[in-house]
Computed example of a mutant assay.
Amino acid sequence: MKRRDLIRQLEEVARQKGQKLVLTEGGKHTKATIGTWSEPIPRHREINEMTARAILRRSKR
């Protein structure tokens, strides 16, 4: 999955929850935060499909 597509999907999850997606740049990862949930996002153009699905699944809890 493309990184930008994952970020767009995370923005949609945040919108559905009535919150904002906050992206904080780090060393090798970007930290995505929605409310109290946060997750590191790899800084690669392509993100492994299983990794992307796991990030999205955890963000929807």
Rank of each mutant, 00 (worst) to 15 (best):
G18W: 08
E39P: 00
E12I: 10
E25H: 12
G35Y: 03
I47D: 03
D5C: 01
M50H: 14
R45P: 00
Q9E: 14
G26L: 11
K31Q: 15
E11G: 08
A54Y: 06
L56G: 04
A32H: 06
L10E: 02
P42M: 10
A14P: 03
V22K: 12
M50C: 11
K20H: 12
T36K: 14
S38R: 14
E12P: 01
T51D: 02
A54V: 13
L6T: 01
Q16P: 09
R53E: 12
R58T: 11
E49F: 02
E46A: 09
V13H: 05
G35R: 10
Q9H: 13
Q9F: 01
K20S: 12
E39V: 14
M1N: 07
L21M: 04
I41T: 04
A54E: 06
G18Q: 02
R15F: 11
T36P: 10
D5K: 11
E46C: 08
K2H: 10
K31W: 15
E46K: 11
R4S: 15
T36A: 14
S59G: 08
M1I: 07
G35T: 08
V13G: 00
G27T: 12
R43S: 10
K17C: 04
L21E: 00
G18I: 02
E12W: 00
L21T: 02
E25M: 04
E25K: 05
L56A: 05
K17F: 03
R43M: 13
P42W: 00
R43P: 11
R53Q: 14
T30Q: 04
K17P: 01
Q19C: 13
R4A: 15
P40K: 04
R3W: 03
S38D: 14
H29F: 05
R58A: 11
Q16D: 13
E46V: 07
R3C: 06
K17N: 08
K20Y: 09
R58K: 15
Q19F: 14
E11M: 09
G35S: 05
E39H: 05
E11T: 05
R53L: 15
E25L: 03
E49H: 12
I34K: 00
K20F: 07
T24S: 09
